[in-house]
Amino acid sequence: MFGLEWYLGISLVLFFVGIAVILSRKNIVAILLGVELILNSAALNFVAYSRFVTQNLDGHIFSLFIIVIAAAEAAVGLAIVIRYFQINNTIHVDEAKELRG
């Protein structure tokens, strides 16, 4: 009953919410939350297309790789955040301008 359009709609909502989180929050961890939402919306699209269009499992494999890369990204990103907090005592993005040219 619920076809491809529904899944694409949910994925669209997730994507734009993720963008809005990235733009509106000033905390680096919160920005990583937005990145996770965006990655998930892409993975949902892949699986939906693989069910309703291509009818094979390549989309599943792509979303598995997205999950793997999201996990790696979260681990490294949060390590950097915690290290940055130890040095500068803040994780406000506007104050993180040490490397600004």
Partner: peptide, 26 residues
Amino acid sequence: QIMVYVGGVVILMLFAVMLTGGKDHV
């Protein structure tokens, strides 16, 4: 998805929020 995100990523996020104070400057 449940295995990686619930067991790993979300707990990491919670740890990071707790260790960095969790203040958001909106």
